[in-house]
Design a protein around this nucleic acid. Structure first.
Lengths: 337, 337
DNA sequence: CTCCACAACTTACCCGGTTCAGTAAATCTC
DNA sequence: GAGATTTACTGAACCGGGTAAGTTGTGGAG
């Protein structure tokens, strides 16, 4: 089957290619009657502009890129990214932008992917996740002048816009809630310590614990996997002064922690309270259901997509806070026995 | 920053554009010495061919499409798709094909996306998941002559290649295992009943149960969500002749089922044995860890990607079986009390 | 010494849109 | 009613690669 082109439309309408282009793009230069005739023909023959031709003649590629930089075994189970993708997609599809995805292993490889995408003119912008300290990706994006939006922060990204959520506020709220319940020994199992938002959370956790006079604010670094989260939990629970509450940096580790507690014969929430960051259906699924810090991840993603599209359109975008997490108490938190 | 083009390389090498194109694509028509000089310059200035220009001049777009057709709340938690994506990606990245993703709500919308992608010449082929009976997508793909690979089946897809796993064999093995443990009342909570592989599983389940003389082979249709899975489990367990074993069509429903059993005071595996289809880290995370039907989903995806790339290259591809699931016994199955 | 084959290029056009510089006719202006 | 402006187009260049067809220059065969 042959793809229809504007030349086909031009022939049928008895006008030139240029007129068709103006008509379909809502540019001035054609009469309203002609425009409607052309649009009707385009509709009738099922015309879609060839994206390559469009991209080639200076316009945008109408596509944005996203790299996923976690190992496959984490990606497959971590609901966060899929939620984020769903959110992007809703926004991108509405403006018929395509989403191009690539899984990478390291930040260096990710930079290479950006360079290639840019060189190939395959995408108009990228969404960057998991901001790190002195992130190698930022200077490259700036040099390439590739429109970008960073998710996670706040951090130093120069002119590149950031979308971030108030992690410090959320963790402060959580610790206050747990101490209100009567907990004095609160621990935390964190995500990858290299990530900026992990550091933000750790700092805020230490601060609020100090402010409340809790002197055993222990953060055990982990890597978002269930295995590591379980191991970290076991290490926390075998000590003499075991914590009565643990906050986890993602839902997967929290669920793993719950399993470890049950395996060790500890009652949840009787002997141990558990709070999961990022709520997901997973948290309501287990027994008892987990108290969680909920935020609308899809909306978070949609927000980032909107910012990126604005940046691509050349608008000045600034850092915005979106989707602050709020505590959703469920069955896994209670006063300590 | 300006993107380097073959014209830039040609100028620096003192040859014509055509010579550069031949040299970089390994075509005959340039001497080995010139080729090396050109390749060296391309490397030095970080040249990447403009994908739009390439796609426009008849070559391929070097991209494939994938639509995700489950609601966001399922996608976010269902590890299957992310596993599949990781597998594709590994294969696609190796041949520097891009993956374009779109989330859709209905098969009709999906068909529209295929039409648009085809019209825009955005992709060279698509991967189709969740084959249904009399699937509306198949005739469209055939008419557009868009290279495609179907995951799931076997079913009637004409010339479009299929990659499928032996679901019937896997469920037969599982039922045999459970009866060997002594179970006589085995139930099943299935996925979406419209999907072809759900029907295949149901038929095989009924067959093996009949063959083994189990006359209460009940399949409760569900939709892969935890909520529905939990509800289906509750319905099964409140009956007088409640099953002593339940097989779930995905891991999320199995985990939800486990929570329901625990909530109802039933011991797993003492009072109820649970088997999850598709293993994932989630299954090992809960307590007790779930016996599961494991298969290498990433490899399954990689296989599909290889088939698709072969189809794009114009090679004749045939239906292949890949990644048959095998039973991984863990703590959730035991002889009934 | 001529003719031919072949390697090693160059030239020029193609893909399908976008866009700018023209142009002819219609409308406005005084 | 002549000149200025506006409208509604057309024609052609352009984006950056791919590639068929044409042009050299060299070496070998006869």
């Amino acid at each position: 089957m042959k793809r229809p082109t504007i030349a086909d439309i031009a022939r049928r309408a008895g006008v030139s290619k240029g007129a068709v282009s103006y008509a379909l793009n809502g540019q001035p230069g054609v009469s309203e009657a002609t425009r409607q005739r052309i649009v009707a023909i385009a509709q009738e023959i099922g015309f879609n502009p060839n994206s390559a031709a469009r991209a080639l003649s200076g316009a945008s590629a109408r596509a944005v890129g996203l790299t996923l930089s976690r190992p496959a075994r984490i990606l497959s189970i971590e609901p966060f990214f899929m939620g984020l993708i769903s959110g992007f997609e809703a926004e991108l599809a509405a403006r018929s932008y395509a989403l191009t995805l690539q899984v990478v292993a390291t930040p260096e490889q990710e930079v290479e992917v950006y360079r290639r995408w840019w060189g190939e003119r395959r995408i108009d912008g990228v969404i960057v996740t998991d901001l790190r300290e002195n992130d190698v990706r930022i200077p490259v994006l700036q040099k390439l002048q590739l429109p970008a939006v960073v998710i996670g922060g706040p951090g130093d990204t120069g002119k590149i816009a950031q979308v971030w959520s108030d992690d410090a506020g959320a963790i402060t709220e959580t610790v206050r809630y747990l101490t209100a319940l009567g907990h004095r020994r609160i621990a935390r199992v964190s995500g990858l310590p290299g990530l900026l938002h992990t550091q933000t959370r750790t700092r805020a956790f230490n601060d609020v614990c100090a402010a409340l006079g809790l002197n055993e604010a222990l953060t055990v670094p982990s890597d978002y996997t269930g295995e590591e989260g379980g191991r970290a939990t076991r290490r926390l629970l075998i000590g003499a002064d075991r914590p009565t509450a643990i906050i986890y940096d993602n839902d997967v580790m929290a669920v793993a922690g719950l399993a470890v507690a049950q395996e060790m014969g500890l009652a949840v929430p009787g002997d141990l309270s558990i709070v999961a960051w990022d709520d997901s259906p997973l948290c309501s699924l287990v027994h008892p259901p987990l108290t969680a810090l909920s935020r609308d991840i899809a909306e978070y993603g949609a927000h980032a997509a909107r910012e990126l599209l604005a940046a691509i359109d050349g608008k000045q975008v600034s850092n915005v806070e979106a989707g602050t997490a709020h505590l959703t108490p469920r069955g896994s938190t209670a006063p300590p026995r």
